[in-house]
Amino acid sequence: MTSVPTLPARRRTMRWRDRDALYGYLFSAPAVLGSLAFVIAPLIAVVWYSLHEWNVLANTFTFIGGENYTRMLTDAALHDSLWASLWFSLGVLVLNMTLALALAVLLNQHLPGTTLFRVLFFSPVVVSLVAWTIVWGFLLQADNGVNAFLAALGVTGPNWLRGSVTAMIAVVVVQVFKNVGLNMVLFLAALQGVPEDIGEAARLDGAGAWRRFTSITLPMISPTMLLVGILTLVGSLETFALIDVLTDGGPGTSTTVLVFYLYRQAFEFNQFGYASAIAVLLFVIVLALTLLQWQTRKKWVFHES
């Protein structure tokens, strides 16, 4: 787009550039204005609500400054939910990425039946969440489903949804099985974009399969891993319906993640002001984590050029 030789041509280019900027604004206008109207403005409104005590039932809306935020410091239930969110998101991120990559690698081996398996692994993505959680509710009972299967192997399974640790494991696994297909497809697409000749060259140089995977394939697909990682993390921090149906935040407060706590404050306790403050906190956390992942990308994301 540079070096244009003759003078008249350059002048034309200058005019073209000016007009080009106008096109830039016009092209991006729907997205930018839409974002202002339907993302930024509501966010500002939520910040505004968070400075108020707002009880919808009593119809009170009183300015209380930063009180909702200082309340957060001493709200033990909020702190519990932050820990729950941490474990849940970490679990989903690690398990989802690992499983998605493993499935993608398996499906990239040109094995018989690959097309069929690709559909099977993807199918939960389109199954309704309601049906999905109902079935898993059945499967995770104390002495049936998964545990009946374990018993056949001679293992006594735990009462999944009734122990704090096992309930967390259960919601992580059910969430991952539901959505891993999408990430799997993204990884599969990335793997198919890795040129085969590089791996072949390394193989001839005597590099083993694992070595070829870690030092060639992984770096080549690291940009996909970054994006998939961000999307999965944001998605995990927004998980609500699954927990609502499977554990209702319990036992105790062990699976009450932040969004669930926010929902509870707003729609069960009718404390819209405090819930808005939690919403602001949630937004800040998501933003910070995303920026962190983005900032550290230079360390591990490989660029072809």
Binding site: V39, V46, V234, L287
Partner: peptide, 16 residues
Amino acid sequence: IVLIGMLVPSEVTIVP
């Protein structure tokens, strides 16, 4: 500005 939208759960902005 546009990217911020990727970071907002729908529960957060449903009331406004």
